[in-house]
Design a protein around this nucleic acid. Structure first.
Lengths: 159, 159
DNA sequence: CGAGGATTTGGCATATCATGCCCCAAACAC
DNA sequence: GTGTTTGGGGCATGATATGCCAAATCCTCG
């Protein structure tokens, strides 16, 4: 499904503009990429259709929402047979507190980003959500004390 | 500036709906949260104004864009005096390849998410962008082999 | 229990915007 | 040079956002 129709510089400009402001009007977007509204909207729809644009979202202050604690969790499995891996990954996808889960190189198999209300919630999360999955060899927890940078905008790779 | 006007359940429903689809129409949004369009839009504007909603963005396929390699980098500084920390953080913010930078608990001081075109680009990034900052004690690189989950939607904390 | 005020909601008119259609210009093949 | 393909521009129409005013709800205090 995700074709690779090779994006050109204008497509990437559209993407970066929308990464800065995803609710930007097509008229403003067209102006920013030096196109008239019609072809601009056509390109946008094409990017959505071929999968380059996967969706739109809103950036929310986690603390204001009521989830002030973000945790990065490194997880290693104690076995890597198909069944263990499949069970872990499908279970992880179903846990709402887990916003992201990456397969990693290095010492641990997975890196999770988890949001919770407080430390107690995190302990509950580990006990009630993670451990019951089974097959987990080690869990290494790091708390996020602060955010230095958080950008949605990809670098310009025109050069 | 980021007040804490205590969001209610409807505000959180608005947020979760927009996290699923950030370009959702106000009419559809109103229907989804059982409100008429007017008060729904007013709540939305209030959330934007008080900082609960920090902005809107688009989710882009990094590979389709031309940045197939994502790297998680753990960085420790060799000193923690004000000057070293300030220089590191302000420099990091200026590097376009660094999409995220968190201050962490645990063995390393920072966790960076970096996107590049290939391994060679990453080596250039470390040599030309990271090391010149100075004051860096250790760099621990982990490559992202795959994405198991990537959600923008916060858990429902009504209960 | 009821009245006042404050807050939130709903409905409506208008301006703005998205969308689909048709035409035009440039690049390309033969 | 001609036919073909690809991408851009303009316009009319339908959908949407926005601001204003009235009505309902909630809270508090008498």
């Amino acid at each position: 499904m995700p074709q690779t129709p090779q994006l050109d510089a204008t497509d990437r400009k559209i993407i970066r503009a929308l990464q800065r402001n995803g609710r930007m009007t097509n008229l403003d977007l067209a102006q920013e990429v030096n196109l008239s509204p019609s072809p601009c909207l056509r390109r946008l729809r094409a990017l959505e259709k071929n999968g380059a644009i996967k969706g739109y979202s809103v950036e929310v202050d986690a603390k204001a929402y009521g989830l002030p604690v973000t945790v990065m969790v490194r997880v290693s499995l104690d076995g890597h047979d198909e069944a263990t891996v499949q069970r872990f990954e499908s279970q992880i996808k179903a846990i709402p507190e887990v916003l992201e889960c990456f397969v990693m190189s290095g010492l641990s198999d997975y890196l999770l980003r988890v949001v919770v209300g407080d430390l107690e919630d995190y302990e509950r999360f580990v006990r009630a959500r993670l451990h019951p999955i089974g097959g987990i060899g080690s869990i290494d927890t790091s708390f996020v004390y602060g955010v230095v940078k958080r950008s949605q905008v990809y670098p310009d790779i025109s050069g």
